[in-house]
Nucleic acid binder design. Structure first.
Length: 290
DNA sequence: CATCCGTGGAA
DNA sequence: TTTCCAAGGAT
């Protein structure tokens, strides 16, 4: 159940792991959960300062659950995808009310929380509790595609097969497996990178099927690149920016000023209301939810 | 399964 | 400048 790849990655990670704050021994499973929410599609260097503030301010799930939505959204700042902040807030409430203020260690219980999917559930089990759980993120999928399958990059996700691939790499015991899981992610993040992999620095190049194949270029289907300019995502971001920066409710005119296309603007404002990222006051103004 | 959901830094 | 993409999840 272990693997040559794991045997190389494990000691490399023990020696070379970045000193990220959520990896320090004093970090609680709650701290790990918060870090995983923030790291969903957001780079490490932008998460670090925000995570530090959150841990000081809301050291337990019940602390965050007790905070007003507006405070949570302002503290989230410009990390992006603010619905994650809403889901984390809701997850904190569920943990406080249904799990005695303790983050579950069971993968199924974790996956039942808002905003927690296959990746985040296993990441919390592995990094928060030191359990053996196959953690499959974009880094790990790329490392496995190269080192195991000899491909230049990972194709579309195949959830079951990807989990099985990683499960087959992990050592049998919890402690080692959790370290290997972190190590595979770290390898993908700093060495086996998407654009220019640093095979000369890779601890696993001797067992890498991609290197053995002569590093062939990826030929499969490319994941579609998302545009941003002119999308609802951009408009929602601009609207939310106004709401975050204002200490109280703003008149509709303040929101109208950020985007000229009235139809798109209204659609986006509606979607923010639906998502719980915005509220309308009795006098018709708009604000972050209380 | 494809698309949507923010933001900003690097190539 | 444009393009890519960064520890995903929900629908």
């Amino acid at each position: 159940m272990s693997s040559p790849l794991a045997d190389l990655v494990l000691p490399w990670f023990r020696a070379e792991a970045r000193d990220l704050p959520w990896r320090r021994p004093e970090t609680t499973p709650w701290g790990v959960l918060v870090s995983e929410f923030m790291l969903q599609q957001t780079p490490v260097n932008r998460v670090e300062p925000i995570w530090n503030v959150w841990m000081q301010r809301w050291p337990r799930p019940s602390d965050l659950a007790a905070a007003p939505r507006a405070d949570v959204l302002r503290a989230w700042g410009k990390l992006g995808y603010p619905r994650r902040a809403i889901r984390l807030h809701d997850a904190a409430a569920a943990i406080a009310e249904q799990h005695g203020d303790e983050v579950p260690s069971d993968v199924d219980a974790l996956e039942a929380l808002p905003g927690v999917g296959s990746y985040t559930a296993r990441a919390v089990a592995a990094f928060g509790y030191g359990l053996r759980a196959p953690v499959v993120d974009t880094n790990v999928r790329r490392v496995v595609a190269r080192a195991v399958h000899g491909a230049g990059d990972a194709g579309p996700a195949r959830v079951r097969a990807d989990l099985a691939d990683v499960d087959a790499l992990l050592p049998p015991d919890d402690d080692s497996a959790a370290v290997v899981s972190a190590g595979l992610m770290e390898l993908g993040a700093v060495v086996c990178t998407a654009r220019t992999p640093h095979c000369g620095l890779c601890p696993a190049s001797s067992v890498c099927a991609w290197v053995a194949n002569g590093r062939p270029a990826y030929d499969g289907p490319r994941k579609p690149v998302q545009g941003f300019a002119g999308t609802d995502r951009q408009v929602r971001g601009k609207l939310l920016d106004v709401l975050r920066d204002s200490p109280g409710p703003v008149p509709r005119a303040a929101l109208d000023a950020v985007w000229s296309d009235a139809g798109q603007r209204d659609r986006c404002l509606d979607s923010l209301l639906v998502d719980g990222l915005c509220e309308q006051t009795d006098d018709g103004r708009f604000a972050l939810p209380a």
